[in-house]
Amino acid sequence: MELGPYILLASLEGAVTAAVLALTAVGLSLVFGVMRVVNIAHGEFFMLGAVIAWWVANSIGGPPAMGFAAALVIAPLVVGTIAAAADMTILKRLEYDPERTIVATIGLLYILQQLTLMTYGPDARPVEAPFNQRLALPWIGRTETGWEMYYPWGLSTTTYKLAVIGAAAAVLGGVWAMMARTRIGLLMRATQADRDMALAFGIPVEKVYALVFGIGAGLAALAAVLIVPIQQAHYLMGADPLLLSFIVVIIGGLGSLPGTVVAAILIGLSDGIISVFFSPTLAKILATLLVGLVLVFRPNGLFGTRAP
């Protein structure tokens, strides 16, 4: 394949990564924005989403679409409930002290990961996509007969991948609508702006926190369900989404949802394209160094303007 079509292919793959990453990172960002909690266990909620999706799809049987549809509903709900319970039993009792909550969520990370290892086992398992037509993509290039549209070999995507991008966009739109247009979104924004003031106005801050933590984890789980037909479910799969979400949230401006989405698209796309030129390990080294340096020199995020 020539470079042009190759980069188009990489961008398409990158767009899928970006879509899933945006969902995961918005979950992390929401939790950080409203609760000021850095949730190190966020990647494990992602992993749980994938594992539960496999479990649901497997126990329901029938056509793949049915199992997948069930997983799409059940996995985020279950994971959200687990997260809300963890918030009420652990984080609330730590009074959301930043450093202690980080230590506690590290503990939570190991608990979730190791319990999955004990029950689900060390294998990677696939979930079948509900639909998966291959779509060959055209490319305009110069051939012997002049400029011409043709289908280069290997330049293709699937209907499912396009659907992932669409679904992620729809969910992000839903999150935006919830934050901007609903009463619960208003309560969340009020709590984010000033916790004490929100308490004084009778907003049930504790319930808002549990809900936000649940929604944040649910978004990660939803992202995982979307990706699990492409990438198998495995108990250690949470590490990469956690790292990438961190990168996105930090670059996008801590706690800013639009910034997070923009950064996710940027990182997802560039991840696809960069891996064309660099080895994945080198790309990760550069990315982690970038995050570290951004935090040191631009603590409000690359695009952030507000003090966190």
Partner: peptide
């Protein structure tokens, strides 16, 4: 899954 112990101890300690 011995790291489970580490996780439980971390949460319990905090």
């Amino acid at each position: 899954a011995y790291m489970l112990i580490a996780g439980v101890v971390l949460v319990a300690l905090t």
